[in-house]
């Protein structure tokens, strides 16, 4: 019975999508950190991508809706900051979906040099001849790039 409850909760929580990048689920993103049972209460842990990520409140609401729709009434949703989220947690499936959606997935693993840019392939034509327009894009987790071959601008999900 309780094993079934956890599975239902996990399935419901894993299906919640990111409100700003709706091709990704919060499980793909690594934002969903834990789904477990404490007695008959479902405990869910999520972690923000960035300190000020405005999607967190919406994600909490969507989680609550999804759990209730799965017939789960007793749950707690906690935000945890540690360990800090990193793009290394983005699933393979998540990276593939990002590229298909037109957002270049993070190139390589997170790193912290002060200067320099990542080598990013254009998600449209695949060219490596791209350049950064701005390190900051439409959401905290993305940067703005442009492809020099197909001339299209595109979002890059930056390493973090």
């Amino acid at each position: 019975m309780s094993a079934g409850l956890r599975e239902r909760a996990l399935a419901a929580a894993s299906g919640v999508v990111d409100p700003e990048i709706p091709v990704l689920t919060i499980a793909d993103l690594g934002v969903l950190r834990a789904v477990r049972l404490a007695g008959d209460t479902v405990e869910i842990e999520i972690t923000p991508t960035y300190s000020g990520c405005p999607a967190m409140r919406v994600i909490e609401q969507e989680l609550a809706t999804a759990l209730r729709a799965a017939g789960i009434g007793k749950f707690r949703i906690a935000t945890v900051l540690s360990p800090a989220w990193t793009t290394d947690w983005l699933s393979k499936e998540g990276r593939r979906k990002l590229a298909e959606f037109g957002i270049a997935p993070p190139a390589g693993i997170s790193r912290r040099s002060h200067f320099g840019t990542d080598a990013v392939a254009c998600p449209r034509c695949g060219s490596a001849e791209t350049e950064r327009i701005s390190e900051f894009g439409s959401t905290a987790c993305k940067a703005l790039y442009r492809c020099r071959r197909c001339a299209e601008p595109f979002d890059y999900f930056k390493c973090h």
Binding site: Y50, G52, P54, L81, S134, F136, G137, S138, A140, L144
Partner: peptide, 20 residues
């Protein structure tokens, strides 16, 4: 425009840190 987005992003990070 790019700088508008950048400064907004920076502000968001800082206000997020402040909230926590």
């Amino acid at each position: 425009l790019e700088e508008e987005l950048a400064l907004g992003n920076l502000a968001l990070d800082l206000i997020g840190q402040a909230r926590a």
